[in-house]
Design a protein around this nucleic acid. Structure first.
Length: 299
DNA sequence: AACGCATCCAACCGCCGAACT
DNA sequence: TAGTTCGGCGGTTGGATGCGT
C-alpha cells in the first residue's frame, strides 16, 4: 500500500547549492518545467531531494524574483498585511508583494519588522500597543511612545491604502481578475456554493496566528471611521473587526453568515475606504516627539 | 589585528492536508 | 479504507558577514 519512496534519502546532498547544481536545475526547468518535484532530481541528475529543489527554485532561482533590497513601501505593506494575514507569508508574496518570495518576507518580518514594531511599542503579534499589564512585554509605554505607536500605525495605514488604491486604479480589470482567481475569490465561490460562513473556509482555518478573530485591532483603532462604518456584526467570530482597506479583509468582511455578500459589496467596501485618517490624537502633542518619529529613524 | 557580538538570509525541519496505491 | 508519500507552508537554525571595541 501507499506510494513507493522516490529515492534513498541517505544518499542525498544537503547544504548550500553549488553554481553547477543551480545551472542544472535552471536548465532542466527551463526545458521541461518542474513537473513532479519528486522525480525532478533524478531526471535532472541532481543528488537533491525534490523538496530541496523546489525550495531552491522558489526562493532563489525563479526568474521573476526581485533581488533588490526591500523598499520602504514594501516594508510598510508587509507590516500592514501582517496585521490582516498574520504569518501567512505565502499569501503576501503571491497576492500582494510581487517578486518577493515568502522566505524573503518571512526573513524581513523576523529580522526587521518585528523589532521595529516592538521598538515603537506595538505587539508584533497583535499589532496593538503594548500595555503595562502585559508582563511578557517589556517595551515602555510612555505617553510619548503611545503617541508614536498610533502615529506610526496611522502612517502605515495611510501609505498602504494609497499604495493599494493606486494599484487598484491602475489596472482594475487585472486586479479583479487576480482577486477572483485568488483565495479570496475561491472563498466567495465556496460561500455561495455551500452557504457556509467564510469563517469556516480553509483560508482562515489554515492561518495559525490570524484566525477569524485576530485581525489587527490597531488597524481598526487607527481608522475609527472604518471601525464604525464597516464593522460587521459577527455571530461566528466574536472579536472580528474587519478594516476593509484591502482585498483580503474585504473578503473577511463577509465573516457574518450573510451568504448573499458579493464582489460588488467588496468593491464598495474597498472604494468606501475613508480618505481621512483620524489624526486628531496628534493634536496637543509636543511636536518635539516627532523629531525622533519612526519614519525618520528607520531601523 | 583579534575578538566578541549582532545581523542577515539560505536552507533545513516538522507538520499538515492532499494525493496516491 | 488504510497506510504511505508528496507538496507546501511556517518556524527555526547556523554559517557568513559586518561592526564595535
Amino acid at each position: 500500500m501507499g506510494r513507493t519512496p522516490c529515492c534513498d534519502s541517505k544518499s542525498l546532498k544537503k547544504g548550500p547549492w553549488s553554481p553547477e547544481e543551480d545551472g542544472i536545475l535552471v536548465n532542466y526547468i527551463n526545458k521541461h518545467g518542474h513537473g513532479s518535484w519528486r522525480s525532478l532530481p533524478k531526471l535532472a541528475g541532481l543528488l537533491r531531494s525534490g523538496k530541496s529543489c523546489r525550495l531552491r527554485w522558489a526562493n532563489y532561482l525563479r526568474p521573476d524574483i526581485k533581488r533588490s533590497p526591500f523598499t520602504v513601501e514594501e516594508e510598510n505593506l508587509v507590516i500592514q498585511l501582517h496585521g490582516s494575514l498574520g504569518n501567512r507569508h505565502v499569501a503576501m508574496s503571491e497576492f500582494e508583494i510581487v517578486g518577493r518570495t515568502d522566505n524573503e518576507i518571512k526573513n524581513l518580518w523576523n529580522t526587521h519588522l518585528k523589532k521595529r514594531l516592538l521598538r515603537i511599542g506595538l505587539d508584533p503579534n497583535t499589532h496593538e500597543p503594548i500595555t503595562p499589564s502585559d508582563p511578557t512585554t517589556a517595551a515602555p509605554t510612555s505617553p510619548a511612545n503611545r503617541h508614536m505607536a498610533r502615529w506610526e500605525s496611522a502612517r502605515l495605514e495611510a501609505e498602504a491604502r494609497l499604495s493599494e488604491e493606486s494599484s487598484l486604479f491602475k489596472s482594475n480589470s487585472d486586479f479583479f481578475l487576480r482577486l477572483w482567481n485568488s483565495e479570496v475569490g475561491e472563498s466567495f465561490r465556496k460561500l455561495n456554493k455551500e452557504d457556509k460562513t467564510i469563517c469556516q473556509s480553509p483560508i482562515l482555518q489554515t492561518s495559525s496566528s490570524t484566525k477569524c478573530g485576530s485581525v489587527s485591532a490597531v488597524t481598526v483603532d487607527s481608522c475609527p471611521n472604518i471601525a464604525a462604518s464597516n464593522q460587521v456584526e459577527d455571530t461566528e467570530c466574536k472579536s472580528f473587526k474587519p478594516c476593509t482597506k484591502d482585498p483580503i479583509n474585504a473578503s473577511n468582511a463577509s465573516c457574518s453568515n450573510k451568504s448573499d455578500d458579493s464582489s460588488d459589496t467588496t468593491l464598495k467596501l474597498l472604494l468606501d475606504f475613508p480618505i481621512d485618517n483620524d489624526m486628531s490624537f496628534l493634536e496637543n502633542v509636543d511636536p518635539g516627539i516627532y523629531l525622533t518619529s519612526p519614519s525618520e529613524d528607520y531601523l
